[in-house]
Nucleic acid binder design. Sequence first.
DNA 1: GCGCTGGAAGCATCA
DNA 2: CCTGATGCTTCCAGC
Length: 899
Amino acid sequence: MQDTSCLRVKPRFNFGPRFPSADTATMKSAEEDALTYTPNVSLSLPLGMGNPCLATQYHNLQNSPVISITSCHQTGYAIHEDTLTSGYYLPHGLRPNGAPPLESPRIEITTYSQYPEEEVEESSSVDPMAKRVNSIVTLTLPNADGYRDPTCLSPASSLSSRSCNSEASSYESGFYNYDNSPQNSPWQSPCVSPKGSSSMMPCTQAAGSSSSPRQSPSNSPHTGVVADDGWTGAPRGSRSNSPLCGTNGIIGGGAGKRKYSLNGAPYRQPSYSPNHSPATSPRGSPRLSVPEDNWIANTNQYTNSAIVAAINALTTDGVSDLGEGIPVKSRKTNMDNSPSMSLKVEPGGDDLGSGADICQEDYSSRMSFKRESYCGGFLDVPPHPYSWSKPKPYLSPSLPALDWQLPSCSGPYSLQIEVQPKSHHRAHYETEGSRGAVKALSGGHPVVQLYGYMESEPLTLQLFIGTADDRLLRPHAFYQVHRITGKTVSTASHEVMQSNTKVLEIPLLPENNMRAIIDCAGILKLRNSDIELRKGETDIGRKNTRVRMVFRVHINQPNGRTVSLQAASNPIECSQRSAQELPLVDKQSLDSYPATGGKRMLLSGHNFLPDSKVVFVEKAQDGHHVWETEAKVDKDSFKSTSLVVEIPPYRNQRISSPVQVSFYVCNGKRKRSQCQRFTYLPPNVPMIKTEPNDDYECQGAPVMPMHSKTFYGQQRLTPLMPLGEPDGCLGGGYSSCPLRPTGIPASSPSSSPKLHDLSPVAYPKCLPGSPTHHPNPMQEMAGRPSLGLPASPEHTSLTLLHSQSSPHLSSPTYHPLYTNSSPSSSPASHPSTPGTATESPFQSFSPSQLPNRSSPPSSPPALPVTIKQEPQELDQGYLDDVNEIIRNDLSSISVHTHA
DNA sequence: GCGCTGGAAGCATCA
DNA sequence: CCTGATGCTTCCAGC
């Protein structure tokens, strides 16, 4: 175990020291670092909680076999991933089982890889030769074809633009890392079809050749180094990185704007992208960011996700491989490479270089550098304002994946966002300096509070950046939370990687009334091109600029269960341009009104224009516009931040039940606000106050009962939730949490969906007992591709894949964990978690079982169908296209639509 | 000198 | 294919 742990540690070390990381601040103080880096314990995380490791946990880990695996996670992930992937695909025929197909890609990655270890490991696992690193890469190229399925690429980013240049490959390599994350890996990438498409070949080759030149410096021999660099560079830190870029400058371009690749093809961030090519990374790039994060994440995944990953690995065939062999070689490689790393200056770099040995030793030595080294930190935790070392309440070995939908309240507990973040926050690129912490409308910062928790144990509040589209809440692929430090920051925090998502952990202290001021969280924008090329990524970044801050807390119960709560903020527009141009509705004075209309409603927001229009829209489930009308706007009372509109009469004055419609503010053809929900009430029915849902997208928003929103709202109970029903549908669980604990203030209007929002209806979808049931909504969606609205038309065919491939998709991973989880703490052991529940909802899926294109859901739930809504930013035409696709799908599938 | 911001240039993609 | 509108990234400059 220790060895493995050491291995892991190493990356971390690197991570810390080297990276100035995105957070420059992070680098600043040892203390901070300590916070930032999870102790080696992280390894334990899997076992214990998501957090900093506790010694006890650590021990546990050691004891449990699982733990060992966990420790290896990175490697394991990588390997694991491959294995899984292959397996996964096999059924589909996409990928031949063996690694071979994958190998080539791996090789490339290795070459460029930022992260030597993983790659090396992978290669090793697959092919001994691969271990050798760079040279190998070249050899494998042929297979590369299969490596990625061009089709998989996100539409948004046109591959073509990227050209064959190393970019793709490099990206992939970078992605690779991502993939490594346990959760993601196996399922992620259907998209990345193994099939070798010849098309890719060129790229591969190109990558090999072209990239090499650029990378040259670092590349070759020092792949490992490069990787290290990657780590180092990983920090992408804002400006700090830029200098590096400058170095690369030539390539990268410095000019800043866009440069052309050597090939002459327009160069997008290609080669340099940090992630992509390790070698480049240091120099290049700022771009590493994503990759780095990922890398970091990999290394850092101390959190629960780590556990999950570990579990996955276990489940997977290749698991064993993960930990072992790879590490050593990688280390060596790294070390060798390390020299190159030295350039970077980061102390951490050295660490990287060192092998497992380094782990402790280096660690110690380096630790001097940073006290809290992971390994050392583990045993010896540096004092900090907030003692992370404090035992965390989480007992559950496994925590819900980030893409799981959780309720905001459960039993006596309720997680509330007391102060919502501003609707606009310009995210910063890696190449930029931080743009500060997300602020609240009032000028302060968002505030989150946990109600109903009476214990004396502090808890950890997790924060990550989630999506704000109409689909299920999930980690946002293009944005990451960014830890802000400095004098102005009063809240301690530290970062951990969970899957490919950076998670900020913030203490929730009883002395603070379990209330946290979120002044330590900024938002980092990852380049679309980096993410879109990521293996398995199906989301598009273009115009996908809205996010939500997602808060989670895991509360251990005396009975051993863990209650996980989640609250998502109002949507936050992160694009500079969008923020300046798109109208945005923050508040509306009325959420519902009788069908007669005529009432004036005040809209508060931004970017309203004198000629702004307010359009009410009702759409059928199939996306057809059932009704659309423009409301009268009182221009006399116009303000850029407020509009007064007269609620138009509903088309049918005799409705017998509330009708959900939406409206948006339109400043022009392509400048629409996000849709706001509005409910027309039967004329004689007393008005019912409903919570506005900013998230609600009008696009494709079907006219449906509020509960449909629930689905959208992503309310979901995790198995972990005590409330959750064993069956997994958890409908009961939701219902059980219908009301907010007394004394709990009403949540802000657009606060995340409440538990009570979860209607039984939504849960039925879970299809208890159904073999095909997907614990994860995404999976569920995958199983019912037709039901989900593809992120983009291009993705239509990939809808299913999307869910599966989602980097964040963790549920599958989760299952094994859940099922296999260790004894006492494991959810499975919970009395409340009947075996059935475990099996049914969390049943682990074999690759073949996993939903995918080739395997349509065996039995679509006979549940109400909800249509996913597209981000409102998308053009109507685009949306219409999507809707059309959906309609087609629906027509081909018999689905029960709820009345 | 650094971090935080606002603004905007330059290039890519879309319509 | 051309052009204008939009979007995305990267820089710059001021506080």
